[in-house]
Amino acid sequence: MHELGVVKHVMKTIRDVAEENKVIRVGSVTLQIGEVSGIVNEQLVDCWNWFREKDDILKGAELKIEVMPAVTFCENCKKEYETVKHGKICPYCGSPNTFLVTGNQFEIKEIEAETEE
């Protein structure tokens, strides 16, 4: 399952950051995930909740997900539209000559943590 790998990579990055910042315990982790990034958010949370219990500093840490809307730009009529609603074909002029402007993000935005200092 794809989400399993994503959770493992997120945790690895957070462990590195935790070490640099002398973190004792992580309270929450906020991800920004685009609407068309291909991630199933519910499965991501399920994987997270299972894996966090195996890690001392991540135990009980809440995973927060900010969903970022997807927007596509049409090169033919120069208009933007909602990707999820209309797909690759421009709803204004019918052109397939479009590209995704935003919506496939895959970012760790921030963490809330207790540190030694």
Binding site: H9, T13, V17, V23, E107, I108, K109, E112, A113
Partner: peptide
């Protein structure tokens, strides 16, 4: 609790 901003892609450690 303090907030640590990361703004790193999820694949950052793998990259």
């Amino acid at each position: 609790m303090k907030t640590i901003e990361l703004h790193r892609t999820i694949t950052d450690s793998n990259d």
